[in-house]
């Protein structure tokens, strides 16, 4: 299948052709200027080579016109890079509303992936062709980075917070997953494979999984197990905020600020309850740091999310640390540039 000397990576996501188009534009401009300079240098070096030891050429006066030209023209060209690149970046960070969720926990030196329905994978990821997939990622130890070259997609996986990225696979096949942020001894072994499947094959794969329980119901069990429900309840006995219908809503904090209850906020409230305290409640919640694994927290987040009535899974609220998704943005509207 693979040639011995590949010169260009496979294009397997909706984003890949756009990134490549911009890459070729950059390549063309760079080749032009590199050749221009190289040819001028070689040409001058030969044409004006020293012919006698005592030769003294005429001096130059400089030229404001030329200086301005080679200041302004490169500036304008780089601004085209900037605008194009920023547009792509913006889109890369705007997952469509209808994206499927996949949760990833990185640890030295493996990837643990969970589908919304509960299927778990290690160092492998099965995804269907044509469906946008949103990754919510965190790390148990050091910083990793989740990189799929064929998708032109990469995002750091950072302990203590969630980062997100999305893709829509376009070509069935197997592609590399690399950890691209150096993470210690077996960094180069922290690799995996993404299997892009036709939707029917993917459904077959999904139903082939055994003993899987959806994330939300696993989270519900954890919620009881850690006795969260003794304080977070919807009656007068509640000592903590009621979590029903919370997800995606603004929360008024003690210091007067308002934040949106997203994944990042819920995670932080479990592990670092003092950071953003809700107005009207006492600072009594203990931290659950070290008591619940990152995967467990993801399940709790999924559970709390499921407590919010939403018109189907399509209305995914905004991910932490990112701007809200563009309404009605379906991947098909990804017109080039």
């Amino acid at each position: 299948m693979r040639p011995d000397l590949p010169l260009f990576p496979s294009q397997a996501s909706a984003m890949a052709p756009h990134v490549d188009a911009l890459y070729f534009y950059l390549l063309a401009v760079s080749a032009f200027f590199s050749l221009l300079i190289a040819i001028l240098v070689i040409f001058f070096a030969i044409k004006f080579r020293r012919r006698s030891e005592d030769e003294v050429p005429v001096g130059n006066e400089g030229s404001l016109k030329l200086e301005l030209a080679w200041t302004v023209i490169p500036l304008l060209i780089t601004m085209t890079f900037f605008v194009w690149g920023a547009k792509l970046y913006f889109r890369m960070n705007r997952p469509p509303n209808d994206a499927t969720q996949i949760f990833i926990v990185g640890k030295q030196w493996m990837w643990k992936l969970q589908h919304q329905d509960g299927q778990r994978e290690i160092n492998e990821l099965h995804v269907p062709v044509g469906t946008p997939v949103r990754l919510t990622m965190t790390s148990e130890d050091v910083i990793h980075s989740f990189f799929i070259p064929a998708f032109r997609m990469k995002m750091d996986v950072i302990p203590g917070r969630y980062t997100q990225q999305w893709f829509r696979a376009t070509t069935p096949g197997d592609f590399h997953i690399f950890c691209s942020q150096y993470c210690g001894t077996k960094h180069s072994a922290m690799i995996g494979t993404v299997h892009v499947m036709e939707p029917t094959a993917f459904q077959a794969w999904l139903s082939g999984g055994s003993g899987s329980e959806s994330l939300a119901s696993a989270g519900s069990k954890l919620f009881q197990q850690h006795a969260c429900n003794t304080c977070h309840r919807n009656d007068s006995q509640a000592r903590g905020p009621n979590l029903e219908g919370l997800f995606g809503k603004p929360v008024q904090l003690q210091n007067g600020q308002t934040v949106t209850a997203d994944e990042q906020y819920i995670r932080e409230s479990i592990l670092m309850p003092s950071a953003k305290m809700v107005a009207g409640y006492q600072p009594i919640m203990p931290t659950f740091q070290g008591l619940i694994s990152e995967e467990g927290i993801l399940q709790l987040v999924a559970y709390i999310r499921s407590l919010s009535p939403s018109p189907g899974s399509a209305a995914a609220p905004s991910p932490g640390g990112m701007a809200p998704p563009v309404k009605n943005s379906s991947p098909e509207r990804e017109a080039p540039k």
Binding site: Y23, S30, T78, F81, A86, K87, M92, F147, K154
Partner: peptide
């Protein structure tokens, strides 16, 4: 270096 300053391309080539 301009490739790396270009956001959309840097995402792919970063740390490679």
């Amino acid at each position: 270096g301009l490739f790396l300053a270009t956001l959309g391309v840097d995402v792919h080539v970063h740390d490679t």
